[in-house]
Design a protein around this nucleic acid. Structure first.
Lengths: 205, 205
DNA sequence: ATTATAAGCTAATTCGAATTAGCCGTCAAT
DNA sequence: ATTGACGGCTAATTCGAATTAGCTTATAAT
């Protein structure tokens, strides 16, 4: 990773911990191991660093939405996903989703940064909502549609079923973001949630 | 409301919209209708204004936790609450909880401020988690315990049942905070959620 | 070999936001 | 009537963080 990239990396870390306004260019430089004025050889100013982070993250989201099949893109359902869903344990799906969101380093720092900065910039809150509400519900809603079609689960209201599946995951995620020491507790609750969800919606009946 | 109180009120509004660091004492003064130096007749400095807001909110939370029976205090269950639960429609309970959180002016601004500032101050994130995770789950868990005892709903896992009830409420709340124009949509989903919850956990069977 | 560019540094400079100094009018209590 | 505290104002002052100026070295291309 070259200096230009490392600046973004360290800046993202700092922004996610303290918020844009509370991070000084000096902090970023120090984290990178250079002096503050040297930053300006790579970026026009502090705001440009922030903007560059956003661009990288947009690009990254686009990639992962496709490859990990959990974060968005409800446009097309290829046969592979469809087939795997038939045999995939819901618990695994939920846990994977949760752990990806929780541990993927970029995702995690970016989410925290969005959480802090979203109220200052409408565009950021839109990104946040899309990433953590609309896209997951849309994508998972489609999956549950297939699962219900297959008769594996039963419901007359797929959007609500999806909300029932996803909202606890989201909620537990916000807990872990705030207090990583509760991760174990949350994972346990997550697993119980999905098992009960499964039971309630009739896979086992 | 005197000047001293109005300062807190306007400052809370501004902090909740832009975050502490992005609000200038000048902004606060302007909102109040005085000049910035006059603020210092009432508060030692900017931080003192922030701290005073926290104190007011702590006090307020303590009050409302008791009087509205939705926001915390799981210590004692008085007979009144117990009795009312027997006949209260869950949908009303959930809607009231949601609408209180969403529309109570102080609660709303304070929640947004906490959301923005929590990562800079461990104490704030603790307050946030307590207010929006632990206390609601604890209190509602107790209520569901009573409801299950009465045989109105059935489950072998009250914490998960409580999570199933509360997580969608919390999730939809975070949506409305970010985009108030989605309130109607969220309320509709909220209602469907609770009806389905009720159905899944067996009130109607 | 020369030159240009990239990327670093130290030492200013700028600039804006927080705070302080010091003055003034009002009003309630002596 | 006088005084003092309260709460406001304008005009500094301070101070710290962002940015710019200008120098240096290394390296890659001519």
């Amino acid at each position: 990773m070259n200096t230009k990239e490392r600046i973004l990396d360290e800046a993202l870390t700092l922004f996610s911990e303290k918020g844009y306004a509370n991070v000084y260019v000096n902090d970023i430089a120090e984290a990178v191991g250079i002096k503050a004025p040297s930053l300006y050889k790579h970026y026009k100013n502090k705001q440009a660093i922030f903007d560059a982070i956003l661009e990288v993250m947009y690009a990254r989201f686009k990639e992962t939405a496709g490859s990990l099949n959990i974060a968005g893109d409800n446009a097309d359902v290829d046969a592979g996903i469809y087939k795997s869903m038939e045999e995939t344990d819901l618990v695994q799906l939920g846990k994977n989703l949760f752990l990806y969101y929780l541990h993927d380093d970029y995702t995690k720092r970016f989410r925290k940064m969005l959480t802090i900065e979203q109220f200052r910039d409408k565009a950021l809150s839109t990104v946040y909502m899309d990433q953590y509400f609309d896209a997951p519900l849309s994508y998972q809603g489609m999956l549950f549609g297939l699962i219900v079609q297959q008769g594996l689960l039963k419901t007359d209201n797929i959007p609500v079923m999806t909300l029932h599946f996803y909202a606890p995951i989201y909620t537990l995620l916000t807990v872990c973001d705030r207090d990583p020491s509760r991760e174990e507790e949350c994972l346990k609750l997550l697993e119980e949630h999905i098992r009960k969800f499964d039971e309630l919606y009739g896979r086992n009946t």
